[in-house]
Computed example of a mutant assay.
Amino acid sequence: MLRLAHLLLFVSVTAAVTLPELNVIKQTTFKYSYSCQPPPLAYRDCALFLTDDSARQNEPELLYNGACGSKDYFEVHFAGSNFGVISDLGNVPLKEVTASKAFNFNNTVGEDNEFFATVPVVSEHTYAALIARDNIRALFVFRIENYQHNGPLTLSYAVKQYGINQSVQEAPGFSWNAPNH
C-alpha cells in the first residue's frame, strides 16, 4: 500500500511539470557570468532553466560562468550524482542541429563531436549539451547570438529531448572518487 502511495505521489508531482517544447527555437539573455555578478551569488540572471520545475528547485540546466576578468565558460556539471557534458559544434546554424548532429555533426564515422564538462564561450558558436540527473535526461542545443566578456550574453536554444524519469532500482555506493578493486 505504501508503494502505491509513493507511486501516486510521483505521478501527481510529475504530471504538474510542464515539459519544454521540442525543436522550437527560443531566446534568452543573461546579465553577467555567475562568478562576476554583484553579491549575493544567484542563478537568476546567468543560468538557463528549461522548465518551471527546474527553476523552482533552483537547478539550472546551463550555467554561464567565469570570474571577473577571466575567460567565460559554460557548464552543465553540477553536484551529487548529476552530470552533464557540452560540445562546441563551431559556427553552424542552430536550425541545422538535429539530435543526431549533436553527437556527430558531419555524420561521418570517426568524427564524433567531443564533449567536455565545461567549454569556453565563443561568439557565434553553437553548442550541444547532454544532461543526466537522478530524475532528468535532456539534450538541448544553443547558439551565442550576442556576447560581451563577463557581461550580457544572448543565446538562442532548442530542446531536442527532455524526460523526467523514475529510478526503479539503482546499485548502491555511487562515488565520483571511488577506485576499482
Rank of each mutant, 00 (worst) to 15 (best):
K26V: 04
R44W: 07
G151C: 04
S100L: 14
I86M: 00
Q166R: 15
P38A: 07
P39F: 03
D52T: 12
I25L: 03
A67I: 14
H149C: 04
F78T: 07
T18H: 13
Y73S: 13
I144P: 04
T51W: 01
T154C: 01
V92F: 01
A138R: 05
N177Q: 10
Y147N: 09
F49M: 07
R137Q: 13
Q166Y: 09
P20G: 02
P39G: 06
A15V: 08
T14W: 10
A47F: 00
V168E: 11
R133F: 06
L130W: 04
R56I: 12
T118R: 11
D53K: 07
Q57L: 15
S123L: 13
D45G: 05
F142Y: 09
S70V: 12
K101M: 05
A158H: 08
P60K: 04
D72L: 02
Q161D: 09
F140R: 05
N177D: 12
N150I: 05
V121K: 01
E75R: 14
D134G: 15
R143V: 06
N165R: 07
T18I: 11
D53R: 09
Q148Y: 03
S100R: 10
H181N: 14
D45H: 07
Y127Q: 06
P60A: 09
A79T: 14
N106R: 14
A128V: 13
Y147A: 08
T98C: 04
G84K: 11
T108P: 00
N146M: 12
N113V: 12
S70Y: 11
T51F: 04
A129D: 05
D53I: 09
P20L: 01
S35K: 15
S175Y: 02
L130G: 03
S123E: 15
S54A: 10
F140S: 01
V92H: 05
A102D: 01
A79P: 08
